[in-house]
Amino acid sequence: MKTLRLLLLPFGLLYWCIVSVRNLFYNMGIFKSYSFTTPIIVVGNLSTGGTGKSPQTEYLIDLLSNDYAVATLSRGYKRKSTGFVLADATTNADSIGDEPYQFYKKFPNIRVAVDADRKNGIENLLQLSPKPEVLLLDDAYQHRRVKAGFYILLTAYDDLYADDYVLPAGNLREGSSGAKRASVIIVTKCPPNLSGEEQDAIAKKLNPTPEQKLYFSYIAYDDRVYNTTNSIPLKELNGNSKIIVAGIAKPKPFFQHVKQVGDVCLTYPDHHYFAEKELKELAVIATNKVIITTEKDYMRLVGKLPDDRLFYLPIKSTFINNGNNFNTTILNYVAQSTANR
Rank of each mutant, 00 (worst) to 15 (best):
D158S: 15
Y151I: 05
N193L: 13
C190W: 07
L154Y: 05
K106G: 14
L135H: 01
F150I: 05
D163W: 02
R173Y: 02
F150W: 13
T155M: 07
L136S: 02
V134I: 14
S176L: 07
D163T: 13
K189L: 09
A113R: 04
N193K: 13
A113F: 09
L154V: 06
V146G: 05
N109E: 15
L167E: 04
K131A: 11
Y157D: 12
L154G: 02
P132N: 11
F107H: 15
I122N: 05
V134K: 09
L137P: 06
E174W: 01
S183M: 06
R145W: 02
P132Y: 05
G175P: 01
Q142F: 00
D117W: 02
Q142T: 01
I110S: 07
V134S: 08
Q127T: 14
D117L: 06
F107S: 12
R118N: 10
I152S: 07
L126F: 05
G178P: 01
V184L: 01
R111E: 13
V134R: 05
A113D: 11
L128E: 15
G121P: 02
Q142Y: 05
N109F: 11
K105W: 03
F150G: 07
L154F: 03
S177K: 14
S183Y: 10
V187K: 06
R145S: 12
I110R: 03
I185V: 14
V146S: 02
Y157E: 10
V166T: 15
V184R: 03
S183W: 04
L194T: 00
R145F: 01
E133R: 12
K189Y: 02
N193A: 15
L128W: 01
F107G: 10
R144W: 06
R144P: 00
P108N: 12
G149T: 12
K119L: 11
V114A: 08
L160W: 10
K180W: 02
N193Q: 15
N171G: 13
L153H: 11
K119S: 03
R118E: 07
